[in-house]
């Protein structure tokens, strides 16, 4: 790792102002993405701003808008939350499948969304459930948040404070794991939301998550798994690597969409 300065934020304002005063700062949440990057010298921040003591960003609560989860809430806390399991069981299961127990003890919701990993499970959930990402200065719809490979709508000094997941009528998740890393080779989340209708989000298949509008339209007529049978996914633009060709991934999208819809019941 290159050397860096370290500051511990004592409040959201403190974290943001530290990022504004020192160019090249980076927030540190669970460190499950940042620390491996630093070790490989893929990043050279001047300063890490530790969010670990912002207890006010660790919460899970429900209101009329849905389930609110604080940015610093760990994957383990979300997966184990009675509130989440009750209201959005598919979300609890999705989070319980991220990494391994030790990663889930450290990794956070805010870090996962800010990373926008092409195979990030939480990205699928945010898109399919029409989540709202709340930052220190604004509210961003999930559709406007993920902007391409590893890119998000966040400014360099912008801090995610919480995410609101509206409670869907039903939701299902189907993930096909890459056998070595256990990240999703491809995964699909399908949800029937109350405000935005059916939404189907795909991760792992391309450099950034995407939705399947044609399938969503078919599902708005009738919610049934066979709607995915006629789905034609163009392999052009999909990821092709050691673990699977673009054509294979295109096929998986259809198979997993069907399973995700069936999983939602």
């Amino acid at each position: 790792m290159y050397p860096f300065d370290y500051v511990r934020a004592s409040s959201v304002e403190d974290a943001v102002s530290a990022a504004q005063t020192t160019a090249g700062s980076r927030f540190l949440a669970g460190g499950m993405t940042v620390l491996p990057m630093l070790k490989q010298r893929l990043a050279n921040p001047t300063q890490l701003i530790d969010l670990g003591h912002l207890a006010g960003l660790r919460f899970i609560r429900a209101d009329i808008d849905g389930i609110h989860i604080g940015a610093m809430t760990t994957h383990a806390a979300v997966a184990g939350s009675g509130l989440v399991r009750e209201a959005i069981p598919a979300l609890a299961r999705l989070v319980d499948g991220i990494g391994d127990p030790q990663v889930r003890h450290r990794g956070t919701l805010g870090g996962a969304l800010a990373t926008n990993d092409s195979a990030g499970d939480y990205v699928a959930a945010a898109l399919a459930l029409a989540a709202t990402i709340v930052t220190d200065r604004r509210r961003i719809a999930a559709d406007d948040f993920f902007r391409g490979m590893g890119e998000t709508a966040l400014a360099a000094d912008e801090l995610i404070t919480e995410v609101v997941f509206p409670i869907p009528r039903r939701a299902g998740y189907a993930k096909f794991e890459q056998l070595a890393s256990r990240y999703a080779l491809v995964a699909v989340m399908a949800a029937e939301t109350t405000v935005a209708g059916p939404r189907v989000a795909v991760i792992g298949a391309a450099s950034c998550a995407f939705r399947l509008p044609a399938l969503e339209t078919a599902l708005s007529r009738r919610w049934h798994a066979a709607a995915a049978d006629s789905l034609a996914i163009d392999p052009d633009g999909l990821t092709s690597d050691l673990c699977g060709s673009a054509a294979y991934r295109a096929d998986l999208v259809g198979v997993l969409a069907r399973r995700a819809i069936a999983d939602a019941g």
């Binding site: 460190g31 391994d100 990663v103």
Partner: peptide, 24 residues
Amino acid sequence: SQCGACVVHVDGLSVKSCSMLAVQ
């Protein structure tokens, strides 16, 4: 962060100590 040989408990939870800074 892959192998788990470095697992220790921090405040009662198992974590990978190669993926955490001492300052954390």
